[in-house]
Amino acid sequence: MNFWDLLILDPMINILLGIYSVIGNFGIAIILFTLLIRAITYPLTRSQIKGTTAMQDMQKSPEFQKLQKKYKDDKQKLQQAQMELYKEKGINPLGSCLPTLIQFPIIIGLYQAVIRALAVTPTQMIELNSHAYPFINISKLVMINNQFLWMDLSQPERLSIFGIDLFGIGGIPVLAIIVVITTFLQSRLMTPPSQPGEQGAQMTQAMNLYMPLLMGYLAFSFAAGLAVYFVTSNLATIGSYAMMGRLNWDNLIPKRKEKA
């Protein structure tokens, strides 16, 4: 038993199985599990928003502008001075990255948990037996029903309409498309307004373009259970930002931005 299994994988598998044992639908179990993860990581999300706001305010402050002017020809010194200013004001410039970074072990763990819990092959079934906690009545639960709406949660999702397969990929990857759209929406709506030409803004623009494609690729290639997690997670993130009044609609509707 390694630390990954002990701390990440086994709890995830057993929480999923626990929810499934009550609900009886693995797709809904993934959705509820995702919301649970979002609730657990909510303090991080909140601190990310606070951190981003503080950073924005700081970047607009006269002190910051002054530093930029003072060290405009010496980038290294500028960075040093900015870091000192962040430190002085108690802002951690990397703090806003943490909730994003924490997503990746969750994605990997969740994917492994979904595949192991669904256990569609003998070796996966034996592994599931060894990962299940004693209080989960795994004998009664297997085999887990892997059907959710039109999807087989253990397989990459494709929707076949009248057997038509236009691109030779087995059908329309509806969920992957939804993942691209919701990731794009999430990125755009959460991005704070920035000055054109800023290096940070350039990076954000690039992230907004590539991140949805990466997530879409993962949703296209891996089991549909992972894509259900992506969509739920994206919608939950947008929802939590909306509740805090932090959605930046101007990024989505350029005309409104011009008016503003």
Binding site: F104, Y111, Q112, Q199, A206, M211, L214, F222
Partner: peptide
């Protein structure tokens, strides 16, 4: 250059997730 760095980073991340996911 910034875009290329981000693209490279995300591709690496995608490969990492693919590998770790099994």
């Amino acid at each position: 250059k910034t875009r290329l760095i981000i693209l490279f980073g995300l591709l690496t991340l995608g490969l990492l997730i693919s590998a770790c996911a099994g």
